[in-house]
Simulated scan of single mutants.
Amino acid sequence: MQKTALVPYAHLPRAHHDLHILTSTVDVFGAAHWLLADRVPQPGGDVLPFDALVVSVDPCGTVALTELSAVRARWPQLDRLPDGGFVVASSRARRFEDADQVQVFDALGRETSTFSVGDAIEHLLVDEAGYIWVGHFDENPVGIRRWSHTGQLAWSSDDAAIPGLFDCYALNVSGTAAWACPYTDFPLVEIRPDRTDRPVRVWANRVRGSHVVAVHDERVAFYGGYGEEGDRLAFGEITEASVEPTDIGLLTLPDGHAPGRRRVVGRGSRIYVQAEPFTTWGVLDLSS
């Protein structure tokens, strides 16, 4: 089976390797971010606010540091807002913590607002307009929602007629649009809330279990799968009603090894992959 290697993309500076990596992501503008802390919040213990450091590396390699005060997320999700602030959210929300599930920080690391988006966050991605897209997994099957940075619901999949939307396996946010590939039917879904004509389009898809998707013009790539297909990289062409498979292979780290435990982010034509110990991002660009 043909192998495709990731291209090295961004590295956490070695000066920060002594801190705990709580989570990491790549934002809509291509900058990589690591959320770091002196300790790891304990899942079974009390949530005590802790100070955290965000290390950001932009596409040119420039490093920036942002100190966040009184972070309360147990299982954090992270992304940056276009104004330089950050969103930190707890993937799991207990009833008495709902109001603080999502924290918004300004560019100086000061909390400006808190709100809840609901339990079981699978994906949290900010778009170029500053809206926060959230996809949930099946312990809270509410689908996909788009929120303002002050906690106002701006769009919901409730009335979008997306088939089999029980678990948002894959979510890709680029520009102000989103692409998704949800369980149980795994259709390819394009969501453009600002478009008055057909804001949601759906294509049938035979690739099952992917956790990240990338799209460029009429080409699409799906990464991941069940069991032995965890490293599968499947390509397809978007036709009028369906995605037609064109090729299948494996995605590897730049050195040719399998990624093992990983984080993945989909942004437009790009699939970003970060393997344990989560200090380095690699990229596959479908437009290349």
Rank of each mutant, 00 (worst) to 15 (best):
A275E: 09
C181D: 05
G209Y: 05
L251Y: 03
G249K: 06
E240G: 14
D231L: 12
P259R: 05
F166A: 06
P187T: 14
T184G: 04
T184K: 07
Q274M: 15
A221W: 06
A241F: 09
P182C: 06
S210L: 08
R145S: 07
A214R: 07
A161R: 07
A214V: 13
L153T: 10
N205P: 03
N140S: 12
Y223P: 01
E276R: 15
E139W: 08
D185L: 11
W155L: 09
D167L: 04
L165Y: 00
W147N: 01
D138H: 12
W203A: 06
P141W: 02
V212T: 15
A204W: 00
V189S: 01
H211N: 10
G209F: 02
I271M: 13
L188F: 00
E244P: 08
R201C: 11
W155M: 10
E218C: 10
V202A: 06
E229S: 14
G268N: 07
D247A: 15
T176R: 10
D158A: 11
P245W: 08
Q152Y: 03
P187Y: 06
P182S: 08
D159S: 13
R267A: 05
R263L: 15
W179S: 00
G209L: 05
S156T: 10
I162N: 04
V212R: 01
V207C: 02
R146K: 14
V213F: 02
I144S: 03
R195N: 10
Y272G: 03
V202H: 01
V173Q: 05
L250A: 12
A180G: 01
S210T: 13
G227K: 07
G164S: 07
D167V: 08
D159N: 13
Q152I: 05
R262S: 02
L171G: 05
A161V: 11
Y223G: 02
L251E: 02
S210W: 04
V265G: 01
G256I: 10
L153P: 02
H216D: 13
